[in-house]
Nucleic acid binder design. Structure first.
Lengths: 153, 153
DNA sequence: ATGAGTGCAAAGGCTTTGCATTAGG
DNA sequence: CCTAATGCAAAGCCTTTGCACTCAT
């Protein structure tokens, strides 16, 4: 039941999963929160606040921020910091599986990307090793590809 | 003479290198800029604005931001985005060599870390492959270890 | 009814910008 | 001298917060 036991939740189960996670911290799965989660599920990539608001018409910006914080506390959403402009939000890896991001240095667009498990494992082992050497307890890693996206080339 | 031909500049050469890079974009190597670069050289890790100001007494915050922007345009300094709090700045990899960051999720401290070239190469090849598949022109990658630092454990 | 959730507007906090002054070439 | 650089203060911009209202239970 812990976060780590879930590897990849099916689309149809997401609503139920989110409702459960919210319930565990005494929060409701309101329509505003539902539409935010829907937007993130559909997008399949980290969305900025403006993008989220486009998909959740009528929701106040402040409510979006507040709901995203609640969803973050519930372990359903993660805040992604890519550049210094807008923060972006995505579903947690419990729901989407482990992945990384391609960040366009021209337009700032962010897309998901996955690499082979074999390389992930080798990388994690190497990071664990060097982190330990410096007395650092590694929780996880973050990896971004920086470059120019299809539409900006 | 281009940035990519430099792999790792010796400490003693840094000042000269910076002066040259600044000159190429018509900027001077002033005392304020010198003290910022000195702070970054000594730190050997990304520094936040408050940290930089501690090491450059008398320099106005606005001047620090402006100078860091100039140094960034000169290709000497890179802005590092780790969390949503303060931006951090470090010397470019032309001066420090390729490396990654360990970010403490408790106190926000950031330290440099390096992994074996063999793994870097394998990783780059894999990233290049998946990026190309999505029509994305990879320039470079960013990799962070997230966890808890020595003093926060 | 009763407390969580929401919208609107104001406040916060990091960063940038305007403008007068200073300094380097 | 003349332009770049600096300090101070004000403005900007994303994000958070206060408060009254609404909605679901």
């Amino acid at each position: 039941m812990s976060a780590h036991t879930h590897v990849h939740v099916q689309a149809a189960d997401i609503a139920h999963h989110v409702a459960t996670q919210l319930g565990e911290i005494g929060q409701r799965f309101t329509s505003g929160r539902r539409s935010i989660v829907d937007a993130l599920v559909k997008a399949q990539r980290p969305l900025s606040i403006p993008e989220i608001l486009k998909h959740t018409k009528g929701l106040a910006q402040s409510s979006a921020y507040r709901n995203l914080t609640v969803l973050e506390n519930a372990g359903v959403v993660v805040r992604v910091i890519t550049t210094d402009e807008w923060a972006r939000f995505e579903l947690s890896e419990d729901l989407t599986g482990h992945h990384h991001h391609m960040v366009c240095s021209v337009c700032g667009a962010v897309d998901d990307v996955r690499i082979p498990d074999s390389i992930e494992n080798e990388l994690d082992a190497a990071l664990e090793r060097v982190a330990k050497k410096q007395g650092f307890a590694m929780a996880h890693h973050r990896l971004d590809v920086v470059g120019v996206c299809k539409s900006c080339r």
